[in-house]
Lab assay of single mutants.
Amino acid sequence: TLFEALYDYEARTEDDLSFHKGEKFQILNSSEGDWWEVRSLTTGETGYIPSPYLAPV
């Protein structure tokens, strides 16, 4: 399942991933609570992002 960003987000740590509203992601790991490890389909980068900022496509 692909997810889309509902809002912009600016990374706060080196493990976070900055992204823009509308960017699409592949979920790599969603078992860590509200922070999911994802791969951006736009940039190819991986990192953690807050799951409340995402919605299924």
Rank of each mutant, 00 (worst) to 15 (best):
T1W: 11
T1V: 13
T1E: 13
T1K: 12
T1L: 14
L2F: 10
L2V: 14
L2P: 04
F3G: 03
F3L: 06
F3C: 07
F3M: 08
F3D: 00
E4G: 02
E4L: 08
E4F: 11
A5D: 00
A5T: 05
A5F: 01
A5R: 00
A5Y: 01
L6N: 04
L6K: 08
L6Y: 04
Y7S: 09
Y7I: 11
Y7C: 14
Y7W: 14
D8Q: 03
D8R: 02
D8A: 06
D8W: 04
D8I: 01
D8V: 01
E10R: 10
E10W: 09
A11D: 02
A11E: 02
A11Q: 06
A11W: 02
A11V: 03
R12S: 12
R12A: 12
R12H: 11
R12Q: 14
T13P: 05
T13D: 10
T13N: 14
T13F: 15
T13Q: 11
E14A: 13
E14F: 10
E14V: 12
E14M: 10
E14K: 13
D15V: 14
D15Q: 14
D15I: 12
D16H: 15
D16P: 02
D16S: 15
L17D: 00
L17M: 14
L17S: 02
S18Q: 04
S18Y: 03
S18T: 09
F19Q: 01
F19L: 04
H20P: 04
H20S: 13
H20Y: 13
H20C: 12
H20I: 12
H20W: 07
H20T: 13
K21R: 10
K21N: 03
K21V: 09
K21E: 05
K21G: 02
K21I: 08
G22V: 00
G22M: 02
E23Q: 07
K24D: 00
K24L: 15
K24C: 08
F25G: 00
F25M: 04
Q26V: 14
Q26R: 07
I27E: 01
I27T: 03
L28G: 01
L28I: 12
L28D: 00
N29H: 07
N29P: 02
N29V: 07
S30H: 09
S30C: 14
S30Y: 12
S31L: 10
S31T: 12
S31F: 09
S31V: 10
S31D: 12
E32S: 13
E32N: 15
E32M: 14
G33L: 10
D34W: 14
D34V: 11
D34R: 07
W35L: 12
W35K: 11
W36H: 01
W36N: 01
W36D: 00
W36F: 07
W36P: 00
E37G: 04
E37L: 15
E37S: 06
V38L: 01
V38Y: 02
V38E: 01
R39Y: 08
R39P: 00
R39C: 07
R39S: 04
S40E: 01
S40V: 05
S40A: 07
L41D: 02
L41H: 05
L41F: 06
T42D: 10
T42A: 12
T43R: 03
T43S: 10
G44P: 01
G44I: 01
G44M: 07
G44H: 06
E45N: 12
E45I: 10
T46N: 05
T46F: 06
G47R: 03
G47H: 06
G47N: 01
G47W: 03
Y48A: 03
Y48H: 08
Y48K: 12
Y48S: 05
I49F: 00
I49Y: 00
I49D: 00
P50F: 15
S51Y: 13
S51R: 11
S51K: 11
S51D: 03
S51L: 06
S51Q: 07
P52D: 15
P52F: 15
P52K: 15
Y53D: 05
Y53N: 08
Y53Q: 06
L54Q: 03
L54W: 04
P56R: 05
P56A: 10
P56C: 08
V57I: 12
V57P: 05
